[in-house]
Design a protein around this nucleic acid. Structure first.
Lengths: 354, 354
DNA sequence: TCGGTGCTTTAATACGTATTAGAGATTCTA
DNA sequence: TAGAATCTCTAATACGTATTAAAGCACCGA
């Protein structure tokens, strides 16, 4: 009646009067499946149906080395409230693509990992999955080095560089998106543009700068001013700096401004404040476009303004990362990179030049 | 340097000059772990760290050990757009609690499983996890029976009954929530209440009825009318039926109505239509409270009205399910049940009696 | 010195599957 | 009709782990 134990291939074999190997041949439907006589095949299938046989995933993985599981490792907690909105689309894309390909998704909790312990915690857990998608800003470089050294297949969401190695990642096409944004501004008549970026000079920032220059070149315009906002300055200092810049721009007939959002969006909030104070209306007196999404909990969102910007194709990036990872599993012949187009968002912060 | 194959306990054993069994004792940290000499333990740990050892989940499950992984199996896709809002909080709760207890979460993709195929898919994948949280409305009873028969630890989100067995689940406290809602209505002066429920007579429906009666008893009121709305009727029929009921209630001096949301919320939409047509204003002429959340994509939400209702503590339920599951893993001594309190939501569909 | 007593380690085994070399049986070829 | 070719099936094995009975060892009391 109700067995305590699930029926195995051995049970089926006994019932059908064949060997376990034959059962395996029939049910796994592998390449050698055709060599089984129709009559035998039928007997096995009948017995399997009769006993309610199902394959044991653990055993199959053990034998084959693959688990048909993809991991998602996040360097920060994905779910906490203030991050939820930002990370969810990535998660969504990863989950959908994973399911589509018939894999299961293993979410690794980095929460409370604190110290890296080899067995229970730490990066090694990842390896129960066939490969891993990595998500999050604040990478533990030691962990990352471990993964690379051990030749574990993984794909980053977002561009990552590790000196001396080639990582696989899916990155937004910041160059193209920025170029398009410039094109859009010049398209409505702007001829003097300024560009405001955080002080730290990572790749995403450099890419946007390249896009900025390319956009200007497209429009046959000369290079235009690029300004930095220190990330760690206090509010007052930021305001003062921006006020000075604003004067400079107005004096210089700048009619449009590109701003790269930083992690806290201080600059964006400050800009809104300073402009209001100086009687400069956006977009009437100055068009402003953001080169990316305002920070999820940052001031840029808090202002309530619907900024003209481009937005990360987060879901697509998640999906693409899974695709890349599966390629990597298929043939581990080197790192994979992929650029995904950003989506332009019409806001109300861009108009025609005065 | 970078091995192609993942190091196993045998590799560690060789490196540390001990046996595989010793390695297993050290790294699995089981009950007999203390019997290993400190010096040996250290040697093993060092070798493991050196080689980057990680346990093979498949092998461990096959053997019957624990993985510190909890599964989340959904009978429908959790993420598809139209369900996203509804299921997400459960997922959130499950994920948070899982992480809190230091487990990882394995999301099983039921997507595309369609027919239960004997070989690749099916319910048995679940067993790579230590236990499983089950989520979703449309259960495959055969799958469920399998799980029970095999004595696999799982906890349902939502009350489930399987004839002949005792399942573990976390369920909303419909009795208490309904009782509170009645109390609230009688508290503001209502003395004649009516109760509208779908035709199918599942436990959740029965619970609410019990709560209704209890609430009436609390207020010292006699039993009040209970009406059914057939679930499969067409729109016109539903409208006609409701119109008739509305007349009846008004003639009977009913001032407040309790409605149990059904899967498609036809009744709620119909109620709004019929009331408008008859010139009956909600809540001025008739107070209406929902005994639960309107269906995620149903008409009840579409009306745009902010119904006074109670809402499922979805996140709490997810968390509680994980807690129960961990208890179950600790001591498999029988099914566990838990009731979670619902949250009252102030809407604008309830007022004082006319 | 001998048997006993903790203490530490190991050999052996089972879990359920996929694969491979080859064994039997049957049919084809010359 | 012998030998080759073909068709079916099976025995044996490996995958990596947890568990258990027992082995080895040092130390102790008698």
């Amino acid at each position: 009646m109700s067995q305590r134990r699930r029926p195995t291939q051995v049970d089926i074999a006994r019932a059908a009067g064949v060997s376990q190997a034959t059962v395996s041949l029939v049910v796994s439907g592998g390449p050698a499946s055709g060599q089984v006589a129709e009559q035998t095949r039928r007997a096995v299938l009948d017995a399997a149906a009769e006993l309610g046989y199902t394959v044991n995933a653990a055993a199959r993985s053990l034998k084959g080395g693959r688990n048909r599981m993809l991991g998602l490792y996040t360097f920060e907690a994905v779910f906490p409230v203030d991050q939820r909105d930002f990370y969810f689309p990535f998660l969504l894309g990863v989950e959908e693509a994973t399911a589509e390909f018939g894999y299961d998704l293993l979410l690794f909790s980095s929460v409370g990992t604190g110290k890296r312990r080899i067995y229970s915690g730490g990066i090694n857990r990842l390896k129960v999955a066939d490969g891993c998608v990595l998500l999050g800003r604040h990478i533990d470089h030691a962990d990352l080095a471990d993964l690379v050294r051990e030749d574990f297949p993984f794909v980053f969401v977002g561009r990552r560089e590790l000196p001396g190695t080639e990582l696989s990642y899916v990155a937004p096409d910041y160059v193209g998106a920025t170029r398009d944004m410039v094109r859009r501004l010049t398209g409505v008549g702007h001829r003097r543009l300024a560009y405001l970026r955080p002080a730290d000079h990572q790749e995403p920032t450099r890419d946007r700068e390249d896009g900025f220059r390319a956009g200007l070149a497209d429009a046959g315009l000369p290079d235009q001013p690029i300004h930095e906002i220190p990330d760690d300055a206090d509010l007052a200092a930021t305001d003062a700096r921006l006020a000075a810049l604003l004067d400079e721009w107005l004096a210089d007939d700048v009619t449009a401004l590109l701003v790269e959002p930083s992690e806290d969006d201080q600059a964006i909030a400050a800009l809104e404040r300073v402009a209001t104070e100086a009687g400069v209306r956006i977009p009437d007196d100055l068009s402003v476009a953001l080169l990316g999404d305002p920070a999820p909990s940052g001031a840029g969102r808090a202002t309530g303004r619907n900024w003209t910007r481009f937005t990360l194709p987060r879901e697509d990036m998640g999906r693409a990362a899974v695709g890349l990872l599966l390629e990597l599993l298929e043939a581990d012949d080197g790192p994979r990179r992929l650029s995904v187009a950003c989506t332009a968002v019409d806001g109300d912060s861009v108009g025609r030049p005065r």
